[in-house]
Design a protein around this nucleic acid. Structure first.
Length: 271
DNA sequence: ATCGCCTCCTGCGCGC
DNA sequence: TGCGCGCAGGAGGCGA
């Protein structure tokens, strides 16, 4: 489910409860996520959390001895519970009790997410070391995108969703950014001009930032660490709007499948 | 190397 | 009301 804005919303929500807190216990109810949770996750016990970072769609819970790497997949969420009587729900797979009384629960019905442990002595985890730049930093610019697209036949939408090129752009924001930039999602990446790359980079930054500002997008089940939805859905121009009038030109929004994912665009506004 | 297809899993909304 | 079907915010891995 979550793309970068939803993950960042989650990170910001849990950070105040986790920072400088000690993990007094960790309970795993379901070990089998996308990959099995390693037994070494138990090393989190009695560790104090120094930082709660994000890299792409991964949340990194950092301690002196190592870090927990959390990915929420399609349906995951992290909830903070302060009422000790709040019952565990179905699909609450992992619970972390904190020294300040808060309890964090990893909830993930589809179990496409993961929880991994990387000891401080180990090299950067292979999931993290090949990731492209963060979209909201200066490292992600038109020069980076033009270089990544040259001679590529893959559709531009698939390319910007590839985390080795740039992290954090998922299926909603890929369609939205391409609409804002006026580029058809199915165009071969190699045929995108420098000026278009420049527009697309700007569009990605603007849309992701706006969505973060509104707490992310809730289509059906995304909730932040307080259990509240995000409000960016009302700002979407094309995602999930096939057959509706384009807000810019009035023509009907089209839907097609690209890379096995639903894609939405306006044939008039996007060339 | 690059690309496209498959897969993991549960839940929900739709049409019949 | 019940069932079967298709689809869903991801992305690694595999075979062509």
């Amino acid at each position: 489910m979550p793309e970068l804005p939803e993950v960042e919303t989650t990170r910001r929500g849990i950070e105040p409860y986790l920072l400088n807190a000690t993990i007094t216990s960790i309970t795993v109810h379901q070990w089998q996520l996308r990959w099995a949770i390693p037994k070494s996750i138990k090393q989190l016990k009695n560790q104090t959390i120094n930082a709660v970072n994000r890299r792409g769609k991964y949340i990194l819970i950092e301690t002196d001895t190592g870090k927990a790497i959390v990915h929420l997949g399609m349906s995951g969420s992290l909830r903070i519970v302060t009422n000790v009587n709040e019952p565990k729900r179905k699909h609450d797979h992992v619970e972390m009790q904190l020294s300040n009384g808060a309890l964090m629960r990893l909830h993930d019905p589809r179990r496409f997410g993961c929880l991994l442990w990387q000891a401080a002595s180990e090299p950067t985890h292979s999931l993290l070391d090949k990731l492209g730049p963060e979209p909201l930093t200066d490292e992600f610019d038109a020069g980076h995108l033009i270089e990544a697209t040259r001679k590529k036949k893959v559709a531009i939408k698939n390319l910007i969703m590839n985390s080795h090129i740039v992290v954090g752009v998922g299926n909603i924001y890929a369609s939205e950014a391409l609409f804002m930039a006026g580029i058809r999602p199915g165009r071969a990446a190699g045929r995108i001009t420098y000026a278009e790359c420049s527009k697309l980079v700007e569009a990605i930054k603007i849309i992701l930032q706006q969505s973060i500002d509104q707490g992310g997008t809730t289509l059906r089940d995304f909730v932040n660490s307080d259990g509240e939805p995000g409000y960016f859905k009302q700002s979407l121009f094309v995602y999930g709007k096939e057959g509706e009038d384009c807000q810019q030109c009035g023509n009907a929004i089209k839907q097609k499948i690209l890379g096995q994912r639903s894609t939405f665009y306006c044939v008039v506004c996007q060339k």
